[in-house]
C-alpha cells in the first residue's frame, strides 16, 4: 500500500497523453518519412543491383553472340579462301591448257613454215643444181644447147631420179 502512494492518477493520465502526443508527432515526422525513405533506398539499391546483374547477363549474351558471329565469320572467310584457291587453281589449269594449245599451234605453224622453207630451199637447191649441172655439162661436152632444152632435159632427169627414190 505504501508503494501505491507513489502513484498519481493525474500524472499517469498526463504521461499517457504525453506519450501518445509524442507518438503522434514522431509517427508523422520521423517514422513514416524515414521508414519510407529507407524502403525506397533499399528498393533503389536492389533494383540497381538487379539492373547491374541484367546488364552483366546482357553483356555475356552479346559476348557469346559476338564470339559465335566471329567464329562463323572465320569459317566463312576460310571457305571463301578455299574457294578462291580452288578457282585460282582452275584458272591456272585453264591458262596452262590454253598455253599448251597455243604452244602446239605455234609448233604446228612453225612446222608448216619449216616445211615451206624446206620446199623452197629444195626448189632453190634444185635450181642451183640444175645451173651447176648445166655448167658442168656445157663444159664437158662443150656443146651448146639452148637454155630451154637444157632445163627440160635436166628436169626430166631429176624427175626420174626422184621417182627411182
Amino acid at each position: 500500500m505504501e508503494l501505491l502512494k507513489l502513484l498519481s492518477t493525474s500524472e499517469i493520465v498526463a504521461q499517457v497523453i504525453n506519450f501518445l502526443l509524442l507518438l503522434f508527432i514522431l509517427r508523422i515526422f520521423l517514422w513514416k518519412r524515414i521508414l519510407k525513405l529507407l524502403d525506397e533506398r533499399k528498393e533503389r539499391i536492389s533494383s540497381g543491383l538487379k539492373s547491374i546483374e541484367d546488364s552483366k547477363a546482357e553483356i555475356e549474351r552479346l559476348k557469346a553472340e559476338y564470339e559465335t558471329q566471329l567464329s562463323s565469320i572465320e569459317n566463312i572467310a576460310r571457305e571463301r579462301i578455299k574457294e578462291a584457291v580452288k578457282e585460282g587453281s582452275q584458272v591456272v589449269n585453264e591458262i596452262k591448257k590454253k598455253a599448251q594449245m597455243d604452244a602446239e599451234k605455234i609448233i604446228e605453224a612453225a612446222k608448216i613454215d619449216m616445211k615451206h622453207e624446206v620446199a623452197r630451199a629444195k626448189e632453190n637447191l634444185k635450181d642451183e643444181i640444175i645451173a651447176l649441172t648445166m655448167k658442168a655439162t656445157e663444159s664437158l661436152i662443150e656443146a651448146k644447147f639452148t637454155e630451154e632444152n637444157d632445163k627440160k632435159l635436166i628436169g626430166d632427169f631429176l624427175k626420174q631420179v626422184d621417182e627411182t627414190k
Binding site: 498519481s8 499517469i12 498526463a14 499517457v16
Partner: peptide, 14 residues
C-alpha cells in the same frame, strides 16, 4: 521523469 512510478506506469499501461 522515469524516477516517477506514475510516468513509467503510464508507459507500461500504453
Amino acid at each position: 521523469s522515469t524516477t516517477s512510478w506514475s510516468t513509467t506506469l503510464a508507459l507500461a499501461l500504453c
